[in-house]
């Protein structure tokens, strides 16, 4: 057995761009997921029957089917709906929908964890419902769910690897191209695994640092 890692070291530039692609997918996917998450929770809180049913169904379907099947479905469904998107945009859409279903659950838990008295105190002071949510409920709720959202972001970052199945531009698809040219499968994927590990560790560390800064107030 001989291992030859020169094939990956020679391709370091392509890999670096792959990392950029992965991070972009993760960041935009997470941003979309948060929009869906906040919107979904707003719909659930309005307690109207049909919209609640739709959001609940969305969450259940997404959580109980594989991401790979979801991304294939979206990839083939969009052209039928007359929409042509490049694979990278499609991947962001799929990541956002998938992450959004999990974000709805997380955010709902966070909002529910804030005591009703906080809202009442805000209302009694004459603030309106929207102001109460923005200025009183939101930050403590985000603090409560920040750890869950952080792990969700890491999970989403790792999920981006699956987007290689529709040839979106990210680290794994770059790796697969190198593999196809060099046939050095193990070396390529071993290296990619290491890169992903570094990405997750750095992201975890950065998110923790951001969290310490953003939610510095003492709780108890």
């Amino acid at each position: 057995m001989t291992l030859d890692f020169s094939v990956v070291t020679n391709a370091w530039q392509a890999l670096a761009w792959g990392v950029v692609g992965t991070m972009l997918l993760a960041v935009f996917g997470m941003a979309l997921a948060m929009v869906i998450g906040v919107g979904g929770v707003a719909v659930l809180r309005a307690q109207r029957r049909i919209p609640t049913l739709l959001v609940t169904a969305f969450v259940e379907v997404i959580r109980n089917t594989p991401f790979l099947v979801q991304i294939y479905f979206i990839f083939f469904a969009l052209p039928f709906a007359g929409i042509r998107l490049n694979p990278t945009i499609t991947a962001i859409l799929a990541l956002g929908l998938n992450g959004g279903a999990y974000a709805i659950e997380i955010i709902r838990g966070g909002v529910e964890s804030i005591p009703k008295g906080q809202t009442e105190a805000g209302l009694a002071l004459g603030l309106h419902r929207g102001e109460v949510f923005r200025m009183i409920v939101l930050k403590p709720a985000l603090k409560a769910i920040y750890p869950s959202l952080s792990s969700q972001f890491i999970l989403l970052t790792l999920t981006t690897a699956i987007c290689t199945s529709i040839s979106a531009y990210e680290l794994t698809s770059v790796g697969q191209r190198i593999e196809a040219e060099t046939f050095r499968s193990f070396e390529v994927y071993f290296t990619l695994t290491g890169i992903y590990l570094v990405i997750s560790l750095l992201t975890m560390w950065a998110l923790a640092a951001i969290g310490r800064r953003a939610f510095a107030y003492p709780d108890r």
């Binding site: 008295g117 105190a121 009694a124 002071l125 200025m135 939610f215 107030y217």
Partner: peptide, 29 residues
């Protein structure tokens, strides 16, 4: 609500705001 103030059993101070910020939020808004 502008004319009537309320004090609660559980205080209900806003944990993410300092004492001063708790006091100036509503007067400003």
């Amino acid at each position: 609500r502008r004319e009537v103030g309320m004090v609660f059993q559980q205080f209900n101070l806003f944990p993410h705001k300092t004492v001063l910020e708790n006091c100036i939020l509503a007067p400003m808004r």
